[in-house]
Design a protein around this nucleic acid. Structure first.
Lengths: 210, 210
DNA sequence: CACCGACGAGACGGGGCGTCTCGTCGTACA
DNA sequence: TGTACGACGAGACGCCCCGTCTCGTCGGTG
């Protein structure tokens, strides 16, 4: 038995859930993750503390759900603008791997620079480094689906001879996602379109003379 | 004016400083960074709380100094074993760039796997993601000096034709440090010697057919 | 339309925060 | 060698947040 008496999710208040998400996202931007408290979230959301403790085990879990919701909304808006039905953002396949990768990596840079995403994403990434459970959820629900887009695009390229057949594509994609994530998290250098372009070039063609 | 009255560092108790370092490193391993408290550090070190607050602004700063001290000791021990005078660990230059890089990257993997380093390093990396000041200190005092070893080795290789002349070596080194850091922090895959080898190969020769 | 459980509100003991005030002790300098 | 000055260990203080609990109330389900 994990929980004493599981709450009845059919009676859950949608209104409260949304208010909690909004409050959490606001607070993490205003005071930072460390000083964000569950009491403050409850107060700002106009909600009892127990309502938060009933549905989430920690403030990290609250923020993760809030951020997933935010990402989903943003994604839906993008699909709508593009006139698409509802598929997630896939990587273009124009037959020019270098151009396709640069296109999506530049978009990723823009997203990482957007202050609306930056504060909560940083908080979750940081908490995931230290909290293994939350880190696994963060990776599974947010990061890995993104990485799978690269896997598919690289495999398609491999069948077409754009990528060498012996290459492990799951490792190859880290050649650009790793450096980008590192610069974002550690602030070891500027995050620019030019930087994204260099990463793609070096990863595709190597740094030794050809 | 930053501080009211600066403490007199000539009268500082070395004994207390060491005890605080030891206590901090033990506690971060036992209870985790989030549950590590300054009260507990003081109690375990047999020290008044004020002594900690007098010399450090936060528990993150305490842990950073403790870890820097630990790293320095470990480094000194390595130099001693090798019979060297006192220079920091440099990257070998046998003329075979691929072999040299694999050698040091495998060593880095071993270090990241060592539980004695893992807990405090994770805590500091995580705190640095969210706390800009501590992150800058962490990068400047610990990370960047390591990266500069790669810069020197790659520049030497560049003059010898091992690395293409147009390549920005400060970006190039991130092709393997970035992915490694990402796997370590996000736990997105196993950290093995084989993985380190693949990264070096892909970075040097690219993932497209040659 | 009745019931039942999620809801907002807030009291509660526990504990860590950061500041403060003791008396003691050890080091720097005369 | 002596003295003064400030760091030291110890711990009290008010504050805030933790996570749990107990109220009535309110709204969705069956």
């Amino acid at each position: 038995m994990a929980q004493k008496t599981a709450p009845d999710s059919t009676r859950r208040s949608e209104r409260s859930r949304r208010a909690i998400y909004d409050a959490a996202l606001e607070l993490v931007g205003e005071v930072g993750y460390g000083k964000m408290t569950i009491e403050a979230i409850a107060a700002r959301a106009g909600v009892g503390k127990q309502t938060i403790y009933r549905w989430w085990p920690s403030k990290g879990a609250v923020l993760l759900d809030a951020f997933l919701d935010l990402a989903e909304q943003a994604n839906a808006q993008l699909s709508e603008k593009a006139g698409l039905a509802e598929p997630a953002q896939d990587i273009p396949d124009t037959g020019d791997l270098e151009a396709d990768l640069k296109y999506v990596l530049r978009a990723t840079v823009d997203e990482m620079t957007d202050p609306k995403f930056d504060a909560p994403a940083r908080a979750l990434a940081a908490e995931g480094v230290v909290n293994e459970q939350l880190g696994a959820d963060f990776v599974e629900k947010l990061l890995e689906p993104q990485l799978q887009h690269y896997v598919r695009r690289l495999r398609a390229g491999q069948e077409r001879g754009e990528v060498a057949p012996h290459v492990d594509v799951r490792i190859a994609l880290e050649l650009w996602t790793g450096p980008l994530a590192q610069r974002w998290m550690q602030r070891t250098g500027p995050l620019s379109h030019a930087y994204a372009d260099r990463l793609v070039e070096y990863a595709l063609y190597g740094i030794t003379p050809r």
